[in-house]
Write a protein that binds this DNA or RNA. Structure first.
Lengths: 246, 246
DNA sequence: CGCTTGATTGATTTGAGTCAATCCCAGTGG
DNA sequence: CCACTGGGATTGACTCAAATCAATCAAGCG
């Protein structure tokens, strides 16, 4: 099999994994793609609420979600957790392990989930040879950092209703980017997890969903969300710097 | 001049910049150090409250603080800012520009400040040749991410007094790492900036400082802090996962 | 020596948390 | 097939930590 055929095969496998435009291969030449493919482990499958890694565990590589959903979080000794991020199909996680080559936070599935692991040692070796891959890694890094910054703005300066609106818009746009409807989707996480991510109480999440529904902004039934007035949702956070403004 | 002499010269210049153990050169061989030195621009000096970059501006490289202090922040359209991080001498900032090779947040001086810029294009080229430099970059990057995660935990789950205690412990340990006293130091930022970083009101910061002082935990006069009971300060955040636990 | 800006202090308000019942599925088993 | 059950979700009543509003106060400075 020649290089182009191999590259094509990878492309299909990555497309089926929703990562084609979002995961590492983007922007790589067929030859570069092929070299990377050799190192990516085939998907692993897990049930809901299974821990993938925890603080102190050795860092093996970057994780890419194929199906389902993953949350990363830190905890206080008293048990409360702060969810740092939700990772939907096509998104990556695990970079918290880069500082000491050991993870610093927890990662757990929220649903039946499959994911790939890209071994970091190999990825790093390839980075030495492939400038385009390095650039891809920087972009990935920078994206993670910018997501965390937006989350800090949310946690530090937004009111509870701004937080929920921001959260819904983020989930909606991420589904949209992946070719799903931005107006109608299933939330992969519980009310409790939403509350932990937004830094508010579960009860507040419930009350806000009810209030949004009464205002005709959306319909919500359990985890099914139907956004009816995207514009009004955007207005609720128009006071905030638009994260897509350039 | 041979390579070793050049390397020594750099080492001195970096030592005088407080970055010897913290900035990029750590762990590089003399030869590698020398190659990197060729690319680092000599320090720039700025007055207090000068903007270094803002969202949308082209990303040229990684910034390293030599003296003074820098804050990075995002703003809401209504004007409130969320400070993302304080950058003290020997620390770096600017990685927010990695995603799109354009910055996503603001960076301003808080004091008379000097800093170096390490041009990213050159740094990246060197990364292709020097595996140890790549590792250093990963570490730097992971560190930034982990700092942001700790900040998210603070903003999402800690009470006002836990936040201030966490903040003081962080500043104290950073001064200590740089060879200064961990018990007696000058805060480089205003009460307003502390409040913006902690996601609370200025008045609350004032009241908490007063309360800490009445409890005999510290003495504070304007920006001069003298920690008198480090143990009690630690107990105030003992409920939280110790960030130095491994 | 006023002036400006940042810090402190006090009085009052309020958004969101906490506590305490239900409610409502989804899954289980008879 | 349907009653039972347990955990997440919702709702209501009440509380409280911190914000807001409103004066000072203090320090640096032209």
């Amino acid at each position: 099999m020649n290089q182009l055929q191999l590259a094509k095969q990878l492309k299909v496998s990555c497309e089926s994994c929703s990562l084609s435009d979002l995961c590492l291969p983007k922007g790589l030449s067929p030859f570069e793609l092929e070299k990377l493919d050799d190192y990516i482990e085939r998907p692993r499958k897990l049930e809901p609420n299974v821990q993938i890694y925890q603080p102190g565990e050795k860092f093996f590589g970057i994780y890419a979600v194929r199906t389902g959903g993953v949350k990363t979080y830190l905890t206080k000794k008293t048990g409360e957790q702060q969810i740092l991020g939700f990772h939907l199909p096509g998104e990556i996680f695990g970079l918290d392990g880069l500082e000491h080559f050991a993870h610093r936070c927890y990662a757990s599935t929220m649903d039946n989930t499959s994911y790939c692991v890209i071994p970091f040692e190999r990825l790093d070796e390839l980075c030495g040879e492939l400038p385009e891959l390095r650039r891809q890694i920087y972009k990935l890094f920078g994206h993670e950092l910018n997501c965390d910054h937006a989350h800090e703005l949310l946690l530090g300066q937004q009111t509870a209703h701004e937080r929920l609106a921001t959260f819904l818009l983020s989930i909606s746009s991420r589904f949209k980017n992946r070719g799903f409807s931005p107006n109608s989707f299933m939330l992969p996480m519980s009310r409790h997890d939403i509350a932990c991510y937004l830094g508010i109480a579960v009860e507040t999440v419930s009350r806000l969903f009810k209030s949004f529904q009464q205002q005709g902004i959306l319909k919500i039934n359990r985890k099914q969300v139907d956004i009816q007035d995207m514009e009004r949702l955007r207005e609720m956070v128009i006071n905030c710097e638009d994260p897509e403004s350039f």
